[in-house]
Structures are given as C-alpha cells and as structure tokens.
Computed example of a mutant assay.
Amino acid sequence: MIPARTAELLRAAVGPGGPSAAALGVVTADGQRDTLVVGHTRHGGPALTGGEWWDLASLTKPLFTAREVLRAAEDGLLDLDDPLARHLPDLAWMQETPLRERTLRQLLTHTAGLGAWARLYTWGDAATIRARFLQEPWEVGPAGPVRYSDLGYVLLGRVLERVRARPLRNFPLESGLTFTPDPTHTVSTEVCAWRERLLTGETHDENAAALGGVAGHAGLFGTLEGTLAQAERLLRGGWLSPAAQQLALTPQVPERTLAFVHACPGWSGGSLCSPQAAGHTGFTGTGLWVDPTRGLAWVLLTNRVHPTRHGHFDIQGLRRAVGNTLAAQ
C-alpha cells in the first residue's frame, strides 16, 4: 500500500544533511494499514524500531487543543462563538482591546488578528509567563484575514483549563499520545541553543517548554501507531461526534477548517489530493493528512530539526512528494 517510489523518497531523505529518522503510516477507508520506518533516533544513534515517541509540535493544535475545544462544546461547557472574555474574564484587564471580544471560533481558524509568536520563554518562570500572557498588551489586527498564530492557541489552552478545571497536562489522552514520553524511546530533535543540550523526550518548542512542557500550541508527543490512529478516526469516523467532526474537516474560512488546513495551492499534502482533503504540519517535521474523497489518510513523522533547524533540508518538498505518490497509486 506504500508505493515503492514513496519508500525510495523516504530512504533518500534520511541521512547526512537531512533528518535522522522518518516514519510513514497510511490507512484506507476500509481499514487497511501500512507503515514504514527508516533511520535512527538520532544521527549515530539506535535504529528505529517503530514504537518510538515523536515530538508532534504543532500537531498539538488539531489533535489535542482544537479537538478538546470541540469536545467541550459537545459537553455544553462553551460555544464556539463565545467571546474570550466569557471564559477568561481577567484577560487584558483594564485595557481597551478587541481581543476580549474575539471568539473561540476565530482563534481556532487563526482569524482573531493575533500575531504568530512571541519570545515567551525569555519572560521568566512558568508562573510569570502565565500571568503576564493574559495581561500583555498584544497588538491585535483586524478580525477575518487568516494569520497563523501560536498565541491564539495558547489562549485556547487557557480556556480549556478554565472550563475543565484542570491543567492541560492532566487531560486524558488516548493510547499512543502523551505529554511525558520516555526519553529512552524518543526520537531526538534539536541541539537547543537556549537549553544548550540535545533535546530527547522534552518539548522542542521553547514557549511550550517554558510553560512546563505543555501549552495549547505544542507539547504533544505521539508514536507512529498512535498518530495514525487519529488519522484513521478522522477518515472513518469516531474522532468526535458526527456534527463536530464535520466541522473539524469542513472549511470555515479560506484554506482553514476549525482544526486543519484545507487543500489549497502549495498545500503540504501535495497537489494531487482531492479538493476535500485537509491536514496539518508540525515544526519538528511532522504532519497528518486526510483525503476523504480518495478514502486515504496518512502520517509522516520526521525529526527535520535534528541536529539544527537551520539546515537546508526541504521538508515541504518531501511532504508534497509523499502526498503525490500516495495519491497516484
């Protein structure tokens, strides 16, 4: 089910100048599965066995945060069109800002007008960052245009903590997903300039790491089988209730669903996917895609930031090539 050409692409990508590891999982609408693992947990390290943990990075957004927001809506704890201030009344206290009235739906679809990123990890300890984050006078642009934002998902994480009355780290996760991987069975990511060590089993994203390892935008780890199980449930049903799952995969704004990026020109899933396809990627080199029309879903996990994010490896080119070869079979 994994074409020979796809396997050739992965084997050629792994090694000096590229990631040390790659894992591909494919599942069809009738439940057929196929997987391939190539490489080592780090350059010069042990060969992959297939059961390792991978830092999923921004796959945390759809697979955890957006899904949990939709689950909270299913449970009647919030509505997608609630303003932020309804759940975070202390947000931007004594400030005149449109942020308090921006909705959960706008945060989910990256249309709330928030910027992409800030150096939260330079602010101090986790408690200081959490307190300052809600009071920082963020520059907020007009609502509507898609503006990818980690900051918006950090806010969604805080909303989830309030409505569930528990920290994100204590949310239940399905088999094959965790916030606390065993470092001895985890694929390494970057030699971090901030932490001055090779990261293995700890969150690569600096801001999520500074917040204790978990935030709304990053911090989730998954095995190949665990992440592929999420793709299968998205494809075959059961990821959420039928109504919520449809919203998670249906465009809400140009190129965005409530949880994923919808197929569009230059899309990470390749140009041969159907117009109904959707997916998401992670900075560490991860990705998940679902093409309901073709009855196909797949997961590609790499550690493309190993040993540094500043290399020249073309992860987007590999993602598109894998998607195209799978669609062409």
Score class of each variant (00 low, 15 high):
E68N: 14
N324V: 13
T35D: 05
G17I: 06
L318M: 05
T97W: 09
R320M: 05
R119F: 10
L301M: 06
G45P: 00
G222Y: 11
G216S: 13
V261Y: 11
P265G: 14
E68W: 14
S58F: 09
P275N: 07
K61F: 11
G17S: 00
P137A: 08
A131P: 03
L224T: 06
T103C: 02
S274Q: 08
Q252P: 01
S175R: 14
L104A: 01
L48H: 02
R169I: 15
L108H: 00
V187D: 00
G45D: 00
H87K: 00
R233D: 06
T178H: 05
L78K: 08
L24A: 07
A57H: 09
L70M: 12
T302G: 07
Q95W: 06
E8S: 12
E68S: 13
F133W: 09
W194A: 14
T6G: 09
R256P: 00
L224M: 01
S271T: 15
P275T: 10
A248I: 10
H310C: 10
V159M: 04
Q95E: 11
P142K: 13
T111N: 03
R197A: 08
P172C: 05
P142I: 15
A208F: 10
T109P: 03
V146I: 15
V305S: 03
N170Y: 13
S268F: 15
P98R: 07
A127W: 12
A92T: 05
L24D: 03
L134R: 10
E202K: 08
E255W: 09
H110L: 05
W54I: 06
Q135A: 10
P62R: 04
G176Y: 12
R86V: 12
G213W: 12
G45R: 00
P183D: 15
F221R: 03
S241W: 00
H40R: 12
G15C: 03
A277V: 07
Q245P: 00
L288T: 08
R105G: 00
V191H: 14
E196R: 13
Q276Y: 12
Q252C: 14
T109G: 02
G323A: 08
R197I: 08
A127D: 15
A243L: 14
A126L: 13
L198I: 06
L77F: 07
L220F: 04
A22D: 06
R102P: 01
Q276N: 09
Q95K: 05
R197M: 11
W93F: 15
W194L: 12
T6F: 12
G157V: 12
F64V: 15
G157T: 13
T128F: 09
A66T: 04
R256M: 05
H204K: 02
R42Q: 02
L63H: 04
Y121K: 01
A244H: 03
L120K: 01
R130F: 12
V253H: 01
P275Q: 12
T284K: 07
G51D: 14
T308N: 04
L70W: 08
A327L: 10
A263I: 08
L78R: 10
A13F: 06
E8F: 02
L228V: 05
A72Q: 04
G270L: 03
L156R: 07
Q245H: 01
G212N: 06
A72G: 13
L10T: 13
A244Y: 06
G323F: 11
A215H: 06
V290R: 02
